[in-house]
Design a protein around this nucleic acid. Structure first.
Length: 438
RNA sequence: GCCCUGGUGGUGUAGCUCGGCCCAUCAUCCAGGACUGUCACUCCUGGGACUCGGGUUCAAAUCCCGACCAGGGCGCCA
C-alpha cells in the first residue's frame, strides 16, 4: 500500500510532523509566488500550501501545472496554521502525480456549477466525488449493516434465493425475459415464493437483501427497474401483528444506527433524524377510507388499492397528528396477490399491511396462506395457471407452518429518510426505463 | 400504456411570449498574463453553444411539422 494518512486524521497538534497524503486535486488557487492546492480524500480535505521561496522549484512547477481532479501523493511537513481550512496545511517537499485528469471535466465535483441529475448520472464516478453524494451511500451501507445485525440478533438466517426464475412469481408485474441456454427464463421480480418455500424447510426465520427486477415502463422519481429490498419471512406467527413487530424493531435499529454513526453525513445532507416511536400506529383500510372522506373530502371506492393521491393526503393527515411512520392494514383481498391470507373475520379483506413513511409506501407484507387447498383455489381465482406453480406448491403439501413476511424497498426508505428529491439519488448506478449506462 | 413539459459552449443558464436590434447573455470552465494567505481569491486578454431533418418567411435560437433525446405526473408497485 502507498503510505499515507487521511486528511481527516490531521490536527494542529501534529505540527512539524512529516506526512504523506493522497487524493484528488479538488481546487487550485494561484497567487503568484504562493500556490494553494486543496487535496480531497474520502475523509475530507486538506490544504497544501506552496510558498515559491520555500519549496523546491520543480515541486512548485508541478503543482502549478497539475490539472484539477488529478490523483496525487503529497509528502511534506504538516504545519498548524489558523488561516488554513481545518487549521492545518502541508508544506510539500515532494509531489507525485499518480494519474493526470483530462480536461475539461464533464461535471464539476466542487459543486460550484450545478448539474442536472441526468448529467450527474451519466458521469456518476465524478458525481460520487462530491462529499454530499458520497454521504448517501455511507448512510446506505450503515443502515444495511444495522439491518443485518438486527435481524441476525432476532434469529433470522440470511439466505440467497435465485435471481433467475422459470416463471412469474406473483403475476402482476412484468418480467425481463432472458435467454437460459435453450430455454427462456426471467429475472426474479421478488424472492417471495422462495422465502415461503423456506418456511417449509424448518429455517423458521429468513431474510434476504435481494435485488428485484421489474420490467414496468414507469417513468417517475419513485420507481426503478432494478431495486434492492430487505425481504423477511417468519414462521409460526399467530397473526400478521407478529410481522409488524419485526418491522418496528428493524426500522428503529436502522435509524438508530444512522443517527449514532453518520452525524457528519447527515449534516452534509442537512437532515435531522428523529427517533421513531416503539409502536407505529395501525390504521385499517376501512378506517383510512373513512378518515379520507371525513377530513380530506376524498371518497374512494371500496376494493381498490389506495391511489397515490390518497396516500399523500393520508400522509399529510398523519403528519399533522405527529406520525411519519404508520401501518395501513387489512386491504381488500382482491387487491392483493394470491398468496395473501384472507382476514379471519371477513373474507372480503386480507391479513395484509403496508408500512407508510411520510405518505409513501416503503413496505408491503402479509400473513401468507399455508393451506394447500386454499392456495390452489386462490391461484385459480386470480386466473393464474396452477401448473406454473408446481414446485412452489409442493412445499405446501408436506407440512407448512403458518407464516408471514414483508419486503422493504431500500431505495425508497433512503429517499424518504434523507428527503432526497429522486429515488435515483439512492442508487449508485440506477437502472430505469431509459438508463442502462453507466 | 396514457398525459404534460423541455432540448442554447464541458457544466448550469438568459434570450423564445411579440421573428430582424443575436456572427447569442451571464457564471463556472479552459489557455495565457499580473498577484505571497487564498478558502466560490481578484484583475486583464483570449477560447468555446442554438439536438437533428423538413417547412413558412426578404429574414428563424425564436413560428409550424416530424424524428431523436430528456424531465415529470398517472396507472402499477418496493
Amino acid at each position: 500500500m502507498i503510505e499515507r494518512v487521511y486528511a481527516g486524521e490531521l490536527s494542529p497538534e501534529m505540527d512539524g510532523e512529516e506526512v504523506s497524503i493522497a487524493g484528488w486535486v479538488h481546487e487550485k488557487r494561484k497567487l503568484g509566488g504562493l500556490l494553494f492546492l486543496l487535496i480531497r480524500d474520502r475523509s475530507g480535505m486538506v490544504q497544501v500550501t506552496l510558498p515559491k521561496k520555500f519549496v523546491p522549484a520543480e515541486v512548485f512547477e508541478l503543482a502549478k501545472n497539475v490539472s484539477k481532479e488529478s490523483v496525487v501523493v503529497v509528502r511534506g511537513r504538516l504545519q498548524a496554521m489558523d488561516k488554513a481550512p481545518g487549521g492545518v496545511e502541508v508544506i510539500p517537499s515532494q509531489i507525485e502525480v499518480l494519474s493526470s485528469a483530462a480536461s475539461p471535466l464533464p461535471l464539476d465535483p466542487t459543486g460550484k456549477v450545478p448539474a442536472n441529475l441526468d448529467t450527474r448520472l451519466d458521469h456518476r464516478v465524478l458525481d460520487l466525488r462530491r462529499p454530499r453524494v458520497a454521504a448517501i451511500f455511507r448512510i446506505r451501507a450503515r443502515a444495511l449493516k444495522a439491518a443485518r445485525e438486527h435481524l441476525t440478533r432476532e434469529g433470522f438466517i440470511e439466505v440467497h434465493t435465485p435471481r433467475i426464475i422459470s416463471t412469474a412469481s406473483e403475476g402482476g408485474t412484468e418480467l425481463f425475459p432472458i435467454s437460459y441456454f435453450e430455454r427462456e427464463a426471467f429475472l426474479a421480480q421478488s424472492p417471495q415464493l422462495y422465502k415461503q418455500m423456506l418456511m417449509g424447510s424448518g429455517m423458521d426465520r429468513v431474510f434476504e437483501i435481494a435485488t428485484y427486477f421489474r420490467a414496468e415502463e414507469h417513468d417517475t422519481i419513485w420507481h426503478l427497474n432494478e431495486v434492492t429490498a430487505i425481504d423477511c419471512e417468519l414462521a409460526f406467527i399467530s397473526s400478521y401483528e407478529d410481522v409488524l413487530r419485526v418491522i418496528e424493531g428493524l426500522i428503529r435499529a436502522m435509524i438508530r444506527e444512522v443517527r449514532e454513526h453518520c452525524a457528519k453525513e447527515l449534516e452534509l445532507l442537512g437532515v435531522e433524524l428523529k427517533e421513531p416511536p416503539e409502536r407505529f400506529p395501525r390504521l385499517s383500510y376501512e378506517e383510512v377510507l373513512a378518515l379520507l372522506e371525513e377530513e380530506a373530502n376524498l371518497k374512494l371506492p371500496f376494493g381498490e388499492d389506495l391511489t397515490t393521491e390518497a396516500e399523500k393526503k393520508l400522509g399529510e393527515l398523519m403528519r399533522r397528528r405527529g406520525h411519519e411512520l404508520y401501518f395501513v392494514t387489512r386491504f381488500p383481498l382482491e387487491a392483493k396477490p394470491f398468496y395473501t391470507m384472507p382476514a379471519p373475520d371477513n373474507p372480503e379483506l386480507s391479513a395484509s399491511f403496508d408500512l407508510e413513511f411520510k405518505g409513501r409506501e416503503i413496505i408491503s407484507g402479509s400473513q401468507r396462506i399455508h393451506d394447500y387447498d386454499l392456495l390452489v383455489q386462490r391461484i385459480k381465482a386470480k386466473g393464474l395457471r396452477v401448473e406454473s406453480f408446481s414446485s412452489y406448491l409442493e412445499a405446501f403439501r408436506y407440512g407448512m407452518p403458518p407464516h408471514g413476511g414483508f419486503g422493504m424497498g431500500i431505495e425508497r426508505f433512503l429517499m424518504l429518510l434523507l428527503d432526497l428529491p429522486n429515488i435515483r439519488e439512492a442508487v449508485l448506478f440506477p437502472r430505469d426505463r431509459h438508463r442502462l449506462e453507466p
